[in-house]
């Protein structure tokens, strides 16, 4: 299998680490090598965060080279743009249409960026902007936004659905399993290919 490079972006506290954990377990379920890299600590207090996940036969670097990202998954709208240079031309971007205003915007000093779809369009990146947090709230908990995005992502990867189920089972507490599986299925429905 060719290496897939996945970039997950968002804001500290949004559940990015859980999502990258599920992807790591997904690789293991499929007997593949995996590396993921993210930063904990200060950055998690509401700052921008990113996780790089690389799945393939043999992975060296934990960081994805610029322009080599196959798929970008963004938990927040404008944070997707921060990593646009890392997405390859012709890649895919799955973006949560959810705005967390950064301090400058919250203070009314800066403007929240617009035209995000167009910017990805210029790079020939297929963009899917969906109101994922809304869907999560409908399912009963905004915290499953990440797993809905995983469901969307699964439509662009070649792994069996059952291996996602196993990976989710390994990564979430048993009492939240059912909700997370529902969220995963909801994500799959959100993408029509």
């Amino acid at each position: 299998m060719e290496t897939v490079n996945i970039i997950i972006s968002g804001v500290g506290g949004q559940g990015i680490i859980l999502l990258s954990n599920v992807l790591a377990n997904l690789a293991l379920e499929n007997n593949l090598d995996v590396k993921k890299s993210e930063v904990h600590g200060m950055a998690q207090r509401g700052g921008s965060v990113v996780s790089f996940v690389r799945i393939g036969e043999k992975i060296f670097s934990p960081l994805i080279p610029v322009g080599k990202g196959d798929i970008l998954v963004s938990m927040e709208l404008m944070e997707s743009l921060r990593w646009i240079e890392y997405v390859k031309n012709g890649g895919t971007a799955l973006i949560n249409d959810y705005r967390l205003p950064p301090p400058g915007v919250a203070m009314g000093i800066e403007k929240y960026p617009e035209g995000i779809e167009e910017k990805f369009g210029e790079k020939d990146v297929k963009v899917f902007v969906k109101r994922v947090t809304n869907e999560a709230v409908k399912l009963g908990n905004p915290r499953v936004t990440n797993i809905i995005l995983l469901g969307m992502l699964s439509r662009f990867l070649t792994f069996e659905v059952s291996s996602y189920y196993n990976a989710i089972r390994k990564s979430v507490k048993p009492q939240f399993l059912e909700l997370n599986l529902k969220a995963f299925e909801r994500g799959r429905e959100l993408i029509e290919l």
Partner: peptide
């Protein structure tokens, strides 16, 4: 892009 430093 507007910066997003960590915040209390």
């Amino acid at each position: 892009l507007p910066v997003r430093p960590p915040i209390l």
